[in-house]
Each structure stands twice: as structure tokens, then as C-alpha cells.
Design a protein around this nucleic acid. Structure first.
Lengths: 246, 246
DNA sequence: TGATTTCTTCATGTATACATTATTGTGCTT
DNA sequence: AAGCACAATAATGTATACATGAAGAAATCA
């Protein structure tokens, strides 16, 4: 998903620090609860404390770290947190879909999102997982656009920020290929039905479809979580998720 | 509503700057689209640029300002933005209410929120508007607690941050006393029904009630908006809201 | 030996000087 | 007259020194 409000020159130290820290945190480089010390990290990243602190604030906004007294600590998530995050995204996307259906969308907007729809049909036929993830994100972006309001688009982007809450999370991590391909096919059917509902002005149906669609994400998390505990695998996006309460 | 993640010592320059800037922005001290210049403001507030920039980032997070190239500008809102913000809050509160109903809440939690409920009954009887606003916020906080998950509580607080989206927004600004008192009575009936639905495990009903409850907020905005344009009144919380698209 | 208090130490909060980038105004060209 | 290019200016981005407050260690008293 396209990141919003990253209008800094992407070579800035703040941006560099942000990317670096984010990827390391998501990868589980520091366990949940770790304190992030400014001086140590500024030496590690070769950056002064000022842009580092800016990156901290962004990461807090994204929900990956939290203030603890003075300074920040890496946030931990329970599996229920992950479910709730997906639920919230589904509910907001559902609202956007309903708003799109209720206000009505132009023919050109409809044509655009249908293009993406057909492109996804193609990549599924070709078993291209990477292509799917990218187009899936694009579809969800376009869906958010259809609501016709910047505020709700922004909220969807926010709700999709946590590593396990994004629309295409876990789109390539499952080992159960059959289950996964089924999930793709069902998900794409949801996509088609969603566009149809919006086209017909069926707001309640569009809402329900978007919510149910998000539940596929929950199923993917559940599968990844079980696989991880059974096979002792490491799942990147689940590095900060623990079985017990955080 | 209690502010989250304000764990800084409240006498810090960052906190001071944040409070000062926020109140001035909400009051319309700078019109929408104004550029906030660091040096000018640091001289105005008697603070260095460092804590000022920290305050900027918080304000961006709250949605009051936005990046525009380099630096920040005061954000403007259309009346539709205000409606959408309320809609989003209603939808998330509805989700929290549904989750509370579905997981079931303990007797002690129920007792606590019922206390608030009865306290609101009292202040309504006494025509105490200020008392109502405070207790109403408390009720909504407790409702968020009932969902039993920090993440969704946090999301509700976020969605209530914009000055026109908070549960008790406009609770003392209307000149149409009859309309306003009716709104209070209906709102309180919603509160009672919400707690009843949660107590009975009626998730769908709780969800619907929370959403409809939020629509009262929309009605209050609409009334305030019309009053403002008709009587050329200034409504503090609407300072940044314009009739046309922002 | 345990608890409490004080002092030391280290981390974060703040100010400011410097670097770099964005913006704006001016002049030229078409 | 309109638009583009370039330079002057002013803003933000970054580094660092210093101030302040918090956390931990040591020592003293009960």
C-alpha cells in the first residue's frame, strides 16, 4: 500500500532511519518491550539523534513502538490484537465501500478499478503470487478512492499499517498451497462482487462483502500462526505477535 | 476524552507548545491552508524549534495540520469531512460495542458503566450541560473499555480527536434549546439501550445503536453549521470547516 | 540483613549553529 | 505578455553541546 504523508525527500536521514528501524522492528530484531536508546541507535545507523527522534514519532504513529515513561519501547501484540486490527480495517473498508455505493461512482472510476480486477484474474491464472500482492494492494487503494473522501482513504491507510493488518499480508507465507490458492480465488470473487455491489448502489451488500473479505486476512493469520507454532517456523510479519496477552 | 500517549511531563516545552498551538488552530487563529513557520512560532511561543517540531508531528497525527512540501499547513475541512469523521467514529464505536456484546462483560464492568448511566440521568434532570459533557465522555470511554482490547480503545480515541468528531462536540453550542434537549434525551436513551444490548449479548443491536448514536453528533453539526451561516455566528469547533470542498 | 536515602550516572529534553533544500523574485527570451 | 531559467533568500533538515530529569548503585541506618 502506498504510504501516505511521506513527503520528505526520500534520501533524508529521517526517512532512512524510519525505513531502517521499521524493517528491523518488524523483523523482530528487537523483542517486544525493548527500550530504543537514542544514542546507541544513532551510532548504529550513523545518524544524529534529531532525525532519529522524528522517526520514533512516526513509528509511534504507525503503532510499532510506544512511549514508556521517557523514551520508546517496541510494542508487542497478542494474537487477539492482530484479529482486532484486521476487524477494524474490514469495518472501515466496509464503510468506504458503502459510501461509494451510496454516492454512486462515475463510469471512468468504475472502468479503472475493473481494469485492476481483470489484471488480478490474469495473475491468478498464471500463479504469480508477487503480482497478485501488488495488484491486490492497488485494488484496495482504488476502492478507498471510490468513497470520494480523503479522510476515509487516510483512515484505511492507517488501519492497514500494522504488518499483519495490510490487505496483502501473508500473501506469500503459507505453506499450505491448496488452502492458499483457495483463499486467493475466494478473495477475488469478493473483489468482483464488491465492484458489482458498488456499481448497483447496493451499500449494505458492499459493506458486508468488504468485512467478510477482511476475514480472509484473519484466516491467513490463523494459518500462519498455527504453522509457526507447529513447525517452529519464523514468520516475518508475526515477529511481534505472541500467544499470550501483550 | 482522555488524551492518550501524552506521557511527557506536562510542563515540558513540547507539551506547552502542543496545547498552545492546538487551541489556537481549533479557534481558527490561522485560517485553513496557512503555513506554520517554525522560527516565527518559536519566537511567538518563546520556545526553541526542537520542541515545536515535536508538537507539529503530534498535530499532524491528530489531523489538524498536514505536510505540504517542506513544513506544515493548517488543514481545512469540508462539511462532508466532518460527517465522514463522525461516521467513522460511529462505525468503530459500533464495532467495540459489538465486540463487548459478543465476548460478554463481567458484572463489575457492567455495574461501573451503569453508575455513569445513572449519573447522566441525574444531570439531565438538573439541566447541567457541563456535567453532561463530562459524563458523556466518561461513558464513551467506559464503552471502549468494555471491548476488552487496547487496540480498539486506542482507535476510538484517535477517531474522536478532531474537534467536531468527539462524542461531546457541540454539547453546548446550540441556540435551539428545545432541539438540543431532545437530542440529549434521545442520546441517553441510546446509552441505556446500548448497555442493555451488551448485557444481553446482542452484538448486532449494540453495533446499530452505537452507529445511530453517532448520527446525533451529525445532527448537532448540521444544526451548528446552519446556525452559523444564518446568524453569522462563530462556532469554535467549526472554525476550520468550510462549505465548499477543502 | 534488609530497607531507605543519597549520590552518581546515563538517558532524554532543549537550544542553537550549520547544512541543505525549497521558494520566490528578477531578468531574459520567445 | 507569458513563460522559463537562474540566482538570491528564507525556510526546513541535521548535528551537537548543554540542561534537566530519571534510573540505578552504593552506603548508611535501623
Amino acid at each position: 500500500m502506498k504510504k501516505s504523508s511521506d513527503n520528505l525527500p526520500s534520501h533524508s536521514q529521517t526517512e532512512r532511519s524510519l525505513r531502517e528501524l521499521r524493517s528491523r522492528i518488524i523483523a523482530g530484531h528487537w523483542p517486544a518491550g525493548s527500550k530504543l536508546r537514542e544514542v546507541a541507535l544513532s551510532e548504529l545507523l550513523g545518524v544524529s539523534r534529531t532525525p532519529l527522534r522524528a522517526a520514533f514519532m512516526k513509528l509511534e504513529q504507525e503503532g510499532l513502538i510506544e512511549r514508556s515513561g521517557a523514551g520508546y519501547t517496541v510494542r508487542g501484540f497478542s494474537i487477539e490484537d492482530a484479529y482486532v486490527a484486521i476487524e477494524i480495517r474490514g469495518v472501515i473498508e466496509g464503510t468506504a465501500a458503502r459510501m461509494a455505493a451510496e454516492r454512486g461512482v462515475s463510469a471512468s472510476e468504475l472502468t479503472e478499478i475493473k481494469k485492476t480486477l481483470h489484471a488480478i484474474d490474469d495473475v491468478i491464472q498464471q500463479d504469480s503470487i508477487d503480482g497478485y500482492a501488488q495488484l491486490n494492494d492497488q485494488f484496495h487503494d482504488q476502492l478507498a478512492e471510490l468513497a470520494g473522501n480523503e479522510l476515509i482513504k487516510h483512515e484505511i491507510e492507517r488501519a492497514s499499517q500494522l504488518p499483519f493488518a495490510a490487505p496483502s499480508a501473508f500473501s506469500s507465507s503459507s505453506e499450505d498451497i491448496v488452502r492458499f490458492k483457495t483463499s486467493l480465488l475466494v478473495g477475488q470473487q469478493h473483489h468482483h462482487a464488491l465492484v458489482q455491489a458498488i456499481e448497483r448502489g447496493e451499500g449494505a451488500r458492499a459493506d458486508a462483502l468488504a468485512r467478510e473479505h477482511a476475514q480472509l486476512g484473519r484466516a491467513n493469520i490463523e494459518a500462519a500462526f498455527i504453522e509457526r507454532s507447529e513447525n517452529n517456523r519464523t514468520v516475518p510479519q508475526l515477529a511481534l505477535v505472541t500467544a499470550d496477552q501483550s
